[in-house]
Amino acid sequence: MDVFGFFLDPANWQGPDGIPVRLVEHLALSLAAVLAATAVGLPIGLFIGHTGRFANLAINTSNIGRAVPSFALMVALLPIALDLAPVLGYPPALGLSFLPIFLAMTLLAIPPILVNAYAGLRSVDRDLLEAGRGQGLRERQILRDLELPLASNIIVGGFRTATLQVIATATIGAILSGGGLGRYIIDGVSRNQPDRLFAGAVLVTTLALVVDGLLALAQRRLTPRALRGPAVGRGGSLPAGGEAAA
């Protein structure tokens, strides 16, 4: 096995199967899924956290999200995606690759975002909120000026979990002829090329570690200075956190 050879070969750095193109595919797909999941999960999580209503929904979402394997979900969505593609006006090929991958990534990214938004808001001291109300703050101001800043550490932790989940799921998506860095792993297996397989693993792992490191920095930056503890975890408390490996 010659891993360095794979990275030194200029052919692997250009064209549609080159590392830059695969990296951009991976990032674009991941970003799209995280944005879509945020659009759905964040408002619901903030609503549940702020009002305290439907709290069971948040907890059950996290449990279901943990139990559904990304690989199983993606493949199970395949027949649905095939039927859905023409309805959305997509060419059938997208129903076979992009659509099920994107749907699975989005569905799996919703629970950590939703649950951490809920858990974050719930972690804010009730007395503080009452004090805010006593000072005449409106509910919207309480959410924006008190709850969001105080919960930002946990909320961003949810994005970290969701993003990692999405990057991992995008990798698996290569089995449905999706693009991204997972191609090297899947093709490495099917063509029996250990170099390609190993190089794919190196690339995906590096991507996950770099993105997680950047998000950890962002998490620290967004946390009000007074609340910055020594070690900042990814999820909330253990039983409530929506963490799931992929």
Binding site: L164, I167, A168, T171, I172, G182, I185, G188, V189, L197, F198, G200, A201, V204, T205, A208, L209, D212, A245, A246
Partner: peptide
């Protein structure tokens, strides 16, 4: 943090 499929691939 290592995506599972990459860990198996390693």
């Amino acid at each position: 943090t290592i995506p599972s499929i990459a860990a198996f691939a390693f």
